[in-house]
Nucleic acid binder design. Structure first.
Length: 448
RNA sequence: GUCCCCAUCGUCUAGUGGUCAGGACACCAGCCUUUCAAGCUGGAAACGCGGGUUCGAUUCCCGCUGGGGACACCA
């Protein structure tokens, strides 16, 4: 019954998901899971002009990348019968009315109102049309578009993020619910679906906040109790510009291409705006357990990609070999083993960097020689085998004695020769993985 | 243009008519360490501006500025 929670994520397939969309999706999913409820993917493809199948495919792919799985996928384009039925109900109750203005006329009306310092709002002029005129318009082939007749009363509701909201009568114009082409608008279809699907919590972006009062009236006109609403402030980029106005850079696809860990993206997005920071230990259960809509602030939060990238690296460092194995295979590292992963993971910022280390550990690299004398000495002393870190330590200590070098003086040249890099795993852990042959060759400055 | 929301360290935020204005992430330093990372310890860092109200405002009110959202036969 009403004990359960049902939420939905309602993207329109008109573009790729960006961080802001993803945040809404995740929070909806988390809220449902937290209450053992249902999370639905509702595809808002009521606008045939802008919706594209390939975007839907991409959206699903992106959600799966984040490891979000929906209980059901609903496509609004296949539910027009349902909307028509609800529309007929409203028509029977006199809550919708036909209008005939052209887009140009409406634009002109808005312009005139603005010039007079008035808010642009539909003036219900079509309500004044006589039956006679309706007949004439119909005969001339004009098809109407339809508006929902708002009641002149205050609408009050409590938003889970924005708090008590009161929308005075007259603050809103009658919303369009059906287009001239017969299609239903988002505003209307959304309500009908929320009723039909038993949505209990509508969590969406702040851009929908002003729709809410009108939608509440539609819920009520349909004889349904409105769900709970939570509107989250939109996200801004590092420069403080709205994400939606960006050309790119912050879509999920781009972040994935950049090598970010999906688990980091999820945790970071959920915590953003709450004052609590995300850590690598924040798995799904943890995020679920302390989700609290009331903790989100009302001001738009900024996206700091550098922060996300840091978190991503820390998440990566904790992944087990079993978890990354399939991805290593995808990277062409089918032979990678647990020892390799344990050795290098702490030095990665993205998984793709493992390839470079694979070259270092099991492949061929060009040594960097900065201290030939030292390296020659070291090469001459490489034992036949270095089986484990303990033996490696012993050898390094012996080198210390033999060369009189210690600390950085000793280790930096060795590291550069052996790995070609300034930084990396600790040498005593690395040496056994390299093997004596490779070590000797690289210390001698040979490509190996 | 009209309406709504917001304004505290770099960032996300907590908070109060009298507080050492707290935390987290980032940052800086020290320790540790063969490097990086991690870890530990310490440090620097904020109440947008102008008026009120008040014995006293970061807190309450007004204005300004700034930011966000809405005002589509888009969603």
């Amino acid at each position: 019954m009403a004990a359960s929670v049902t939420t939905r994520f309602a993207p329109s397939p008109t573009g790729h998901l960006h961080l802001g969309n993803a945040r809404i999706a995740i929070i909806n999913c988390l809220l449902a899971r937290r209450h053992q409820g249902r999370w639905l993917l509702r595809v808002d493809d009521t606008d045939p002009a802008r919706s594209r199948e390939e975007f839907l495919t991409a959206i699903c792919e992106d959600l799966r990348w984040l490891d979000l799985s929906w209980d059901e996928c609903i496509r609004q384009s296949r539910r027009t019968d349902l909307y028509a039925q609800a529309f007929a109900e409203l028509e029977a109750r006199g809550r919708v009315y036909p209008c005939y203005e052209t887009p140009e006329e409406l634009a002109q009306l808005r312009r005139q109102q603005q010039e007079r310092g008035l808010p642009p709002r539909y003036d219900r002029r079509a309500r004044a049309l006589s039956d006679q005129m309706h007949r004439e318009l119909a005969r001339s082939g004009r098809r109407p578009y339809w508006r929902f007749l708002l009641e002149d009363r205050e609408v009050a509701f409590r938003d889970l993020v924005f708090g008590e909201r009161r929308v005075p009568p007259g603050a809103l114009g009658d919303p369009v619910v059906r287009r001239e082409d017969g299609g239903f608008t988002y505003l209307f279809a959304s309500v009908v679906d929320d009723v039909a699907l038993g949505i209990t919590h509508v969590v969406r972006g702040e851009d929908h906040l002003t729709n809410t009062a009108a939608q509440i009236q539609i819920f009520e006109a349909l004889g349904a109790a409105p769900p709970r609403f939570a509107h989250l402030p939109l996200l801004l980029d590092a420069e403080g510009r709205p994400l939606a106005k960006r050309h790119g850079g912050l879509t999920l696809r781009e972040l994935r291409a950049r090598g970010l860990e999906p688990r980091a993206v999820v945790a970071w997005l959920v915590r953003l705006g709450t004052g609590r920071s995300a850590g690598p230990e924040d798995d799904w259960e943890r995020l679920c357990a302390d989700l609290d809509l009331a903790r989100y602030g009302r001001q738009p939060a900024r996206v700091d990609l550098a922060e996300l990238e840091r978190l991503s690296a820390r998440v990566l460092h904790r992944l087990s070999f079993a978890e990354v194995r399939p991805r290593l295979v995808e990277l062409g590292l089918a032979d990678a083993d647990p020892a390799f992963w344990a050795l290098v993971r702490g030095n990665l910022s993205t998984l793709a960097e493992a390839r470079g280390w694979w070259q270092v550990v099991r492949g061929v690299i060009e040594p960097v020689v900065v201290d030939p004398d030292l390296l020659r000495e070291a090469a001459a002393r490489v034992p036949d085998r270095i089986a484990d870190p303990e033996e490696a330590r012993r050898w390094l200590r012996s080198l210390q004695k033999a060369t009189g070098r210690r600390g950085r003086e000793l280790y930096r040249p060795l590291r550069l020769a052996l790995t070609g890099r300034e930084h990396g795993p600790e040498l005593h852990l690395l040496l056994p993985e390299l093997g004596a042959e490779r070590i000797r060759a690289r210390l001698e400055g040979r490509r190996a």
